[in-house]
Amino acid sequence: MKVSELAAALDLKYVSGAQAQDREISGCYIGDLLSWVMGRALGGNVWITIMSNINIVAVASLTEAACVLLAENVVPDENVIKKAEMQDVIILSSGKTAYELAVKLYDITK
C-alpha cells in the first residue's frame, strides 16, 4: 500500500512531503519517546506519534519510516515542516487518537 492510499483511506492531511506520497508502507510503530523509536521503528513503517519536536524529522529519516503520522491534531512548528520538506520526510496529521488510527490501519492492511 502507498502512503497516498493510506492518506485517502484514513482521511489524513499532508503536513509535509506530499510529493513523496507514492512511497510504500509496511507495518506500523507507535511511540513518543524518540530514543525508543530510533531503535525500534522499522523501514517502511507508519510511525504514529504525538511528538512534534524537530527531532522527529531526523528520526523518521534514520529509521526510514514511510511517514510520520501525528495523532490528535498535533501541529508541528514551521521549522519542523521546513526541515521535513528538505529531507523528503512525509508528515501526516489526523484528529484521531493513536489507537483509533492503528485500528483503522490494521483494518485496511490486513
Binding site: D32, L34, S35, N53, I54, N55, V59
Partner: peptide, 11 residues
C-alpha cells in the same frame, strides 16, 4: 533530552 528526543537538537 536523550530519552525523549533521542539526541540534542542542533537548533
Amino acid at each position: 533530552v536523550l530519552t525523549n528526543l533521542g539526541f540534542i537538537p542542533e537548533e
